[in-house]
Design a protein around this nucleic acid. Structure first.
Length: 247
DNA sequence: GGTTATGTTATTTC
DNA sequence: AGAAATAACATAAC
């Protein structure tokens, strides 16, 4: 379900509850102190990459939707409820997700300069981190949440395509300006993805991910599980350049 | 029934 | 010890 932009969109949907106390908290999530939650006021909602952070005065709840996570706003789904929070004006229910209680200050745990959707995102830092992993394939490196938090498999494929860069390229062989472009493409695609969510426009904007034909060359796209992560790569051999190892 | 899918983390193995 | 492979979790669609 989630890449960074969808979590950012979820935050916007839930911001209406900020300032309200929890009326009821239920669910089966481990590590969540349910009896402690009622009457706590939701002070802020943050996101970090694919993580949703519900902030209360003395702690935070971290929700990660993982692969199959679902949520329902003012509705219920027919499966095990992990975490349900009822506020004065509505209810949010989370399913099939990872929930955690965080007592440490968030600034101590998160570095928002690595979050592609955060205003403080630092593209140069991301570039330097990539350069520190010269032997990795770019299709693996660009999924690393410690480098570009929020990027998932869809954004990966679209950003690589926009930069004419083959997913099996070796990081150390890619010219630096192209790597720089790739980082920038992750940011701009994520921002566009979020605005499509906000405007509720269909995902016609995906050019290669889960598609069959290259929109530029009209040749069939290749689909392969590449890299150590073995995630699906959709790419055009004709218009995405491969920078292979030179030994 | 098998495969695949927008993800991460704990455990095992080398 | 530490990197790397494997398992684990949860769910729906084809």
């Amino acid at each position: 379900m989630p890449e960074g932009p969808r979590i950012a969109f979820l935050k916007e949907q839930l911001d209406q509850f900020v300032g309200q106390p929890v009326v009821e908290a239920q669910g089966t999530a481990k590590n969540i102190p349910f009896p402690l939650l009622p009457e706590q006021t939701l002070t802020e909602i943050k996101t970090f990459g694919k993580e949703l952070l519900l902030c209360f005065p003395d702690f935070a709840l971290r929700i990660h939707l993982l692969f199959f996570g679902k949520y329902a706003l003012n509705a219920e789904l027919n499966r095990e409820l992990q975490l349900g929070l009822t506020f004065e004006s509505g209810t949010i229910n989370f399913y099939a997700c990872d929930c955690r209680y965080i007592s440490e200050p968030l600034e101590q745990l998160y570095d928002w300069t690595t979050d592609v959707l955060h205003p403080s995102f630092d593209p140069d830092k991301a570039l330097q981190k990539l350069l520190r992993q010269p032997k990795q394939l770019i299709c693996d490196a660009i999924l690393e949440q410690s480098i570009v938090a929020g990027v998932g498999n869809g954004i990966k494929n679209e950003a690589l395509f926009r930069c004419h860069l083959h997913p099996a390229s070796v990081v150390g062989e890619i010219p630096e300006p192209i790597l720089k472009n790739l980082v920038r493409a992750c940011v701009t695609f994520s921002q566009e993805y979020l605005s499509w969510k906000q405007e509720n426009t269909p995902t016609k904007n995906w050019q290669v991910y889960q598609r069959n034909t290259c929109p530029r060359d009209l040749v069939p796209l290749r689909k392969e599980k590449l890299g150590k992560t073995k995630r699906s790569c959709y790419f055009c051999e004709k218009c995405q350049e491969l920078y292979a190892a030179s030994f």
